[in-house]
Simulated scan of single mutants.
Amino acid sequence: MIALHQVVDALEALPTTAFLVLDQGRTVLDHGTTTTPGFLASARKSVLSVLYGPAVADGTIRLDATLDELGIDDIGGLLPQERRATVRDLLTSSSGVYHPATAAAGPEDDAPARGTQPPGALFLYNNWDFNTLGTIFERCTGRPVFAALAEDLAAPLGFEDFDPARQRLLGRPDVSEHLAHHLFLSARDLGRLGTMLLQNGRWNDRQVVPASWVAESTSVQVDRGPGVQLDYGYLWWLPRILGRGSFLAIGNFGQYLLCVPPGLVIVHQRAVPDDTVLARTQGTPAPNPIDSVSPVQFMKLVRAVQAALRS
């Protein structure tokens, strides 16, 4: 397919490590090292959302449970208002809790002063929310996040490159007691995850994730208003340009998992050295600059793939 050769040419001009396209589970394009586990950066948060599905469905985790009910606190203490934030508020990055996060700083650097925004009032991409969701998952389920990843996703989906020893709990415990669960997965294993989600949570004859959770978590929970391209679900970005039903995980440096109904899955990865990962999570300068693949560049690749599949 000539048009796909044009996609490969575009990839060669980028610092792409792996690029995988699946359509209805069939491999359309496999470029780069798609079998090597890579750092997901913030794309990890969308995987955590998937893990939440069974626990929410069976009542182990209640979306309306507050931080106070769950006994969640942090260094220096949370404010009374912050303790009223619910699990749902954290899943939509709208908790109003602007306690410093343990790992790399991000948009929350520009957060309002603590106690000025009630829970649920303001969407602000906030690593404290995401890291604390890992703590909540482990306390409510009694299972480590990494064990759930292995047992609930890697095993039933038949991940081929999953390495339990690569997963890392990182951050600075002197800043926050809620550390970041960083994941390392290959492009082809992420492709299986995306395909399963587009099949309403089913893989072969097994319902891996409740269909109701797939629908709810990837639907608009935060309409971000005019002038933006991405709305938000439960830890998933929702690209307006691709139409309702599409959902996207985004990680720094160029980590993407895009799912477009009925069956298109596109994975892009940019390898990040371990010393850079450690530096970011410890709040220190990276040893060497890393070229990134921006969301704009990724979406150009997506459009080229879609055009090739139509030709």
Rank of each mutant, 00 (worst) to 15 (best):
P80Y: 01
Q81G: 14
E82H: 10
R83F: 07
R83W: 04
A85L: 07
T86M: 01
V87P: 09
D89R: 05
D89A: 06
L90T: 06
L90G: 00
L90R: 03
T92V: 04
S93K: 10
S95C: 09
G96R: 11
Y98Q: 04
Y98G: 05
H99F: 01
P100I: 04
P100D: 07
A101I: 04
A101W: 00
A101T: 03
T102C: 08
A103E: 01
A103I: 02
A104Q: 02
A105T: 13
D109T: 08
D110L: 13
D110K: 10
P112S: 03
A113F: 15
A113S: 13
R114D: 00
R114Y: 04
G115K: 03
T116M: 05
T116C: 07
P118S: 14
P118T: 13
A121T: 12
L122S: 07
L124V: 09
L124N: 06
N126D: 07
N127D: 00
D129S: 11
F130A: 06
N131I: 09
T132M: 01
T132P: 07
T132S: 11
L133K: 08
L133P: 12
G134N: 01
T135Q: 01
I136T: 14
I136P: 13
F137I: 05
E138V: 10
R139C: 13
T141K: 08
R143K: 11
P144Q: 04
A148K: 02
A148M: 07
E151N: 05
L157D: 11
G158E: 09
D161G: 13
F162T: 08
F162L: 10
D163C: 11
P164A: 08
P164M: 07
A165K: 10
R166Y: 06
R168G: 08
L170K: 00
E177Q: 13
E177I: 11
E177D: 11
E177N: 08
A180P: 03
H181T: 03
H182V: 06
H182Y: 08
F184M: 00
L185K: 05
A187V: 14
